[in-house]
């Protein structure tokens, strides 16, 4: 659903499934199973439950989101908000009480030059073998 209309509001007693897409603001206070995509702001209200990716310029979370969130400008997780999934944003604000479980990426445009060290499991008392320390060549 794409249009130049006045935006979309999903009321508290509404349940949706599918792709909710709008060029204008989207506000969710009900249940959505699927994508929520706006070219402007996305507001997930306190009563909202979203299962699926959320994407917008400005994303504000006061409800529950299970899925990836991408906010090109700013992501704000309010004190009643809960996010279970990865987030990607330039500017992140998490209020005290907000819950976030997942990975966070904050792209700055700078490329990292160091390769992350491979993880190795070492049990106490064991001497790491050469095979464990040398990373596999791919």
């Amino acid at each position: 659903m794409e249009t130049n209309g006045p935006g979309t509001t999903v009321g508290v007693n509404v349940a949706l499934s599918g792709t909710l897409k709008d060029q204008n603001d989207i506000s969710v206070f009900g249940m959505v199973e699927g994508e929520v995509i706006s070219e402007k702001s996305v507001t997930i209200g306190q009563t909202a439950q979203v299962k699926g990716p959320v994407k917008g310029e400005l994303v504000t979370i006061a409800g529950v989101v299970r899925g990836a969130i991408s906010a090109s400008e700013k992501l704000e997780l309010l004190e009643t908000g809960k996010v279970f999934g990865s987030i990607s944003t330039k500017n992140l604000v998490i209020h005290s009480g907000g819950i976030f479980v997942g990975k966070c990426e904050m792209p700055t445009g700078e490329e990292t030059t160091e390769e992350p060290e491979p993880e190795s499991e070492i049990e106490s008392g064991d001497t790491p073998s050469e095979e464990t320390l040398v990373p596999d060549e791919e």
């Binding site: 659903m1 999903v10 509404v14 349940a15 949706l16 499934s17 599918g18 792709t19 897409k21 699927g34």
Partner: peptide, 11 residues
């Protein structure tokens, strides 16, 4: 059903 992509119900 909106534009064949979004289904929902409400009271």
């Amino acid at each position: 059903v909106i534009d064949g992509k979004l289904r929902g119900y409400a009271y």
